[in-house]
């Protein structure tokens, strides 16, 4: 632990007094992100839990400028802020779009895709709590297969897999994509710092435990974050330029059951259901490993072309 703490900047750019629920992963995510980015940062927040967490007008828990914007406009408003700053020669300010899964995977996807295709010089971080939590736990396209939400009741839980947004963005060939977890703060901060150092569009996907929405104990949020990574449900990796895959943390072989059974939203799942989820997770992990291997081959191929 002491080694991890060593890598985390001491400065606190998110103050105290936020109004999030106990055990909120989104709040810790912001704290780490701002430690990595520093004070020369502006944040754009569309409708999401963080519209509330930041505090009511005129207060703000963050020590950097915050612009609250409409649900589907995180990426487009951030693009505009970057352009406005650039037009004034202020090119050194980081513009951070900070949105939940609804504003990213669903209603904001068009604007995000547009910004990615234009390769806007912004960092977009989605804290993904896997449902519309701010409106009271309704399914989103980020809700995993089998999960209960108020719009996917236990008798008819979500019957479609979680949208693979990281792959959708990889298809946009943006310079940098990463997954991150609050249970691995050194990895989290290193990725945000790396994103800051790269010009163009950066996207970071953070799995963000939500005790009321996941029906989990607040004190289990870090544990759940860790189990999601170690069970390979949410592997930690990064993608450069849409093709260079690298796994940043080799997971231990924890069964998904350990992760799922700590959450009330999966309480209705039978052992058979869980076995099926396990198979799906194993398959996805295999696919990811293959992509890593493929990008190593691509690397060799590119080196050969460069030498010709």
């Amino acid at each position: 632990m002491s080694q991890i703490m060593f890598n985390i900047p001491k400065e606190e750019n998110m103050g105290s007094g936020h109004v999030a629920c106990p055990g909120c992963g989104a709040t810790l995510s912001m704290r780490y992100a701002l430690k990595a980015l520093g004070l020369d940062t502006m944040i754009v927040i569309p409708a999401c839990c963080w519209s509330i967490i930041d505090g009511p007008t005129p207060s703000s828990v963050n020590k950097v400028p915050v612009f609250h914007t409409a649900f589907e406009t995180a990426a487009s408003t951030a693009s505009g802020i970057k352009a406005g700053l650039k037009a004034q020669g202020k090119d050194d300010v980081t513009v951070l779009a900070w949105a939940g899964d609804g504003g990213t995977f669903d209603i904001g996807f068009q604007a995000l895709s547009g910004a990615a295709e234009r390769n806007e010089d912004i960092i977009y971080i989605s804290y993904d709590n896997e449902a519309y939590m701010n409106t009271g736990i309704q399914r989103s396209s980020a809700t995993p297969y089998g999960a209960w939400t108020t719009t996917t009741p236990a008798k008819h839980p979500k019957d479609r897999p979680k949208k693979n947004l990281v792959e959708a963005l990889a298809a946009h060939h943006i310079p940098y994509i990463a997954t991150a977890s609050v249970a691995y703060p050194d990895d989290f901060i290193a990725k945000v710092k790396k994103a800051k150092s790269i010009k163009g569009m950066k996207f970071i996907h953070v799995l963000s435990p939500c005790p009321p929405g996941w029906k989990s104990a607040p004190e289990n949020s870090i544990k759940l974050s860790r189990l999601a990574v170690e069970s390979k449900i949410f592997p930690l990796f990064e993608i450069e330029n849409g093709w260079r895959y690298r796994i940043t943390h080799e997971p231990k072989d924890v069964p998904v059951k350990e992760y799922l059974r700590l959450q009330g939203r999966f309480a209705h799942l039978t052992d058979k259901d869980i076995n099926q989820i396990q198979k799906e997770v194993d398959l996805n992990w295999k696919r990811l490993k293959m992509k890593v291997k493929l990008s190593e081959e691509d690397e060799k191929l590119l080196a050969e072309i460069a030498n010709e």
Partner: peptide, 26 residues
């Protein structure tokens, strides 16, 4: 000027909202 060629009118207005918020005439 910076010219952002967006993917919809909704994003066009959102982008100029962002730009104008920094004090750039949009």
């Amino acid at each position: 000027a910076e010219y952002i060629k967006v993917e919809s009118e909704h994003s066009a207005m959102a982008a100029v909202i962002g730009a104008e918020s920094t004090g750039s005439r949009s």
